[in-house]
Design a protein around this nucleic acid. Structure first.
Length: 274
DNA sequence: GCATTACCCTGAAAGC
DNA sequence: TGCTTTCAGGGTAATG
């Protein structure tokens, strides 16, 4: 389940071999992802263009090309971007293949087809339906405690739903939202406007800490996630609450609970989180 | 404005 | 063993 740390890890694993290569040809499966892959649009924007950089915004991956055009990728639930040699057998559910200069391919594989793959011109990107609705990236240098306090005060909802709302904070998903709330000692059902300044500061630190740890561990590999070189992350070994229903809290020993909020599982410790 | 629900999709796991 | 059902979840849209 790619969230911010997984997407960041994919971006980092793409750069060394992708930057500097040109797109020689593009093939697509014809099957629709969350939205259809428009082959002609990709062709127009990317054919012959040289990859110049790889960025991340929230859970979106952006590959910048010499033409000024950008390939926007969302990995959805099960999306992978993988390097491969042209002769290598293609994995099932390979939806796009970018043949690159120097005898390398970049393949997009996505069994559950929740991902997005779309090309934009530099001017269109900011106004795209994907990026135009995003809130602030929690690792952005200008994100501050004061900003989080203001956001919490203006929202009137439960903390877990707030953290998952990409129009406020862009990048947290179910795993890191649960972990951040545990680390901050805050219950997932707490109302945002009832979180005081001290607790908000703890939450701010916790969000950054769980995301940075996730990046250090090169992502959480529960089922599908691997980076562009096919390597798994190790962050799943460090999780305090996510996926640990019924197991003892490592801090207080009480059993981790699971509740459903907004059709998503929330894991929390009833002893440590208030 | 926010909460809830359904939907898209496949594969793994659980249940029978 | 083998089939069927359930569950996982990011984002979006419809509904209350």
């Amino acid at each position: 389940m790619p969230e911010l740390p997984e997407v960041e890890s994919v971006a980092r694993s793409l750069r060394p071999r992708l930057v500097g290569r040109r797109v020689v040809a593009i093939e697509v499966s014809g099957l629709s992802l969350r939205r259809p892959i428009e082959r002609e649009r990709l062709e127009r924007a990317l054919a012959g263009a040289k990859a110049e950089g790889v960025r991340r915004v929230g859970k979106y991956l952006l590959i910048d090309f010499s033409t000024g055009n950008v390939l926007l990728v969302h990995l959805g639930m099960s999306g992978r971007l993988l390097f491969a040699r042209p002769g290598e057998a293609r994995a099932p559910h390979t939806h796009a293949v970018f043949r690159l200069s120097g005898g390398l391919e970049l393949r997009y594989v996505d069994p559950r087809r929740f991902g997005v793959l779309r090309a934009y011109s530099a001017g269109e990107l900011e106004r795209s339906p994907e990026l135009s609705v995003l809130g602030i990236d929690p690792l952005a240098p200008d994100f501050s405690v004061a900003q989080l306090i203001a956001m919490l005060a203006s929202a009137r909802r439960d903390l877990k739903g707030f953290l998952l709302d990409q129009s406020r904070l862009a990048g947290l998903g179910n795993i890191y939202a649960c972990e951040a709330l545990f680390l901050a000692g805050l219950g997932p059902r707490r109302r945002t406007h009832r979180v005081g300044a001290a607790a908000a500061a703890r939450l701010f630190g916790a969000i950054r800490e769980v995301l940075e740890a996730g990046i250090r561990n090169r992502g959480t590999s529960f089922s599908d996630y691997v980076d562009a070189e096919g390597d798994q992350g190790s962050n799943q070994n460090t999780l305090a609450v996510y996926g640990r229903e019924g197991e003892p809290c490592r801090v207080c020993g009480r059993k981790i609970r699971r509740v459903v909020q907004g059709a998503r599982s929330t894991f929390y410790c009833p002893g440590c989180q208030k």
